[in-house]
């Protein structure tokens, strides 16, 4: 919705409005602030309130880290933070899916579920990249099966046997199905 209210309001006006209200409106509201109690702060001692909450725009900011790669930012903030992580920039299909996810706010299912979808696509992309670079994934090492073999052997063997049984049953079922299909076609 291009014309949505959030696209039409002026940004960074919160303190302007609050200060205006406190200087003007509050004087005309009977009882304004008379029960305010700084001790009544359920966030203490985790938070040492010192008024910085209301200095949102004029705090000392670090220099900006050069933006020399694609970095997403939540649409709930105006831009990237002064520093940011440079691990694994978006790439390929998973990157395109992530790009779409970041068009939505963190309050939406679309944002998070699309990111999870991208994560799963990324795993397949990772395997393809490995093979491209001559790296053969080694599940024995990468899935920690070595540790399972050492410390949990009977359960590990049980799971391996179950998996083998299911795969064999699946293969036999498919073979039988295609055989039946061939027989029907011959008739």
């Amino acid at each position: 919705m291009k014309n949505a209210l959030e696209n039409r309001i002026d940004e960074f006006q919160d303190r302007v409005i609050a200060n205006r209200n406190m200087a003007d409106l509050a004087l005309n509201i009977p009882g304004w602030g008379m029960d305010a109690d700084p001790e009544n702060d359920p966030t203490y001692p985790m938070k040492h309130y010192n008024g910085a909450d209301h200095q949102r725009l004029n705090y000392e900011k670090a220099p900006q880290q050069p933006l020399d790669m694609e970095v997403f930012h939540s649409i709930e903030r105006p831009g990237v933070t002064r520093v940011f992580g440079t691990s694994t920039p978006p790439a390929g299909l998973s990157g395109a899916i992530r790009r779409y996810a970041y068009k939505y706010s963190e309050a939406t299912a679309t944002h998070w579920m699309t990111l999870i979808l991208a994560d799963r696509v990324d795993v397949i992309q990772g395997k393809i990249n490995d093979l491209k670079h001559g790296v053969i994934p080694n599940p024995w090492k990468e899935r920690g099966w070595r540790a399972e073999w050492k410390y949990n052997r009977s359960a590990f063997l049980g799971r391996a046997a179950t998996t083998a049984l299911l795969i064999t049953a699946g293969v036999l079922w498919f073979k039988r199905r295609s055989l039946n299909k061939q027989l029907l076609e011959r008739r």
Binding site: K47, A52, Y59, K61, F72, H73, R77, T81, V83, F84
Partner: peptide
């Protein structure tokens, strides 16, 4: 990761820095 100067860090909420994570508020 905390900048030490945003309103949250100033109030010792170093786990909630405003200048350390672009991707999720």
């Amino acid at each position: 990761i905390a900048c030490g100067s945003c309103p949250h860090c100033k109030q010792e909420l170093f786990g909630n820095c405003h200048e350390a994570n672009s991707e999720a508020t």
